[in-house]
Design a protein around this nucleic acid. Structure first.
Lengths: 130, 130
DNA sequence: TTAAATATGTTATATTATTACATAGCGTTA
DNA sequence: TAACGCTATGTAATAATATAACATATTTAA
């Protein structure tokens, strides 16, 4: 379990912003939005983002270079993420599917590799965009 | 099935280079290597890369911004990729696991989304690095 | 044989992310 | 409390990744 009480000022500001959005935000768009709060440089944003990713409060959508809040209040799935991404409207949803997660968690390759993390992104068209 | 006979000069040069490497190559490292062959600008590389990804000859490792050749001669899996990535030595291997692929192919979320593609990346430590 | 589609070459620029360095705060422990 | 280790901060500069815009050429198909 992560300790959420230790978030610093910058981390809180940036997490707040990301949590208010239900869609992924890009680093420089975050930077633009938090300038009024005294965060002036990309590095300040990236440092906070990296920390928030590390503790599982947010996830990075790798194919989009964007960051979305983790809706799972327990924040235990920083290392096991599944997303669906609409290639038309770019809507992103985190998927929680017990059975699929189980399969992924239990997956063993034939090279004896020890996994501690996975990220899965599904692409397609959402209901609205079909 | 894709038509491989239609690759253009630039596409061939860049595919050759990527196929000679068993590990992912980055766009600007590719650019550096193909300058002697008359490819001078990033855009020429990215255009070839995008095409090669589209037809399934190579895959992009999203978490690494790098490109690796598809070893599957049939090239039918441009839209269904699974990789294992060692976080220590950065070795990347494409995984072909029938059962897992089946699960992913058959996965349906509860939002009625129609998927046409997925990308899964496993992270951990390979045998050598454990 | 013209039109449409695809690819090329080039310059410039946009976007994403890190290096390097100086400083500040905080908890431990001696 | 003083000294240390650790983490975070602020700032400037720059590296790394990727695309826009434009002119031209080549290929494909009607």
């Amino acid at each position: 379990m992560q300790k959420q009480e230790t978030l610093t000022k910058n981390q809180k500001i940036i997490l707040d912003l990301i949590e208010k959005s239900d869609q992924p935000l890009k680093a420089y768009s975050i930077l633009f939005d938090v300038k009024k709060k005294g965060i002036n440089a990309p590095l300040q944003v990236y440092r906070a983002l990296n920390k928030l990713v590390k503790i599982g409060k947010i996830h990075k959508i790798e194919s989009r270079n964007a960051f979305i809040a983790c809706k799972n209040s327990k924040c235990q799935i920083a290392n096991a993420t599944i997303f669906s991404i609409c290639e038309s409207c770019e809507d992103v949803t985190e998927i929680h599917d017990h059975k699929l997660s189980e399969h992924l968690r239990d997956f063993k390759d034939n090279k004896g590799m020890k996994y501690n993390k996975y990220n899965l992104e599904f692409f397609g068209l959402c209901k609205k965009c079909v």
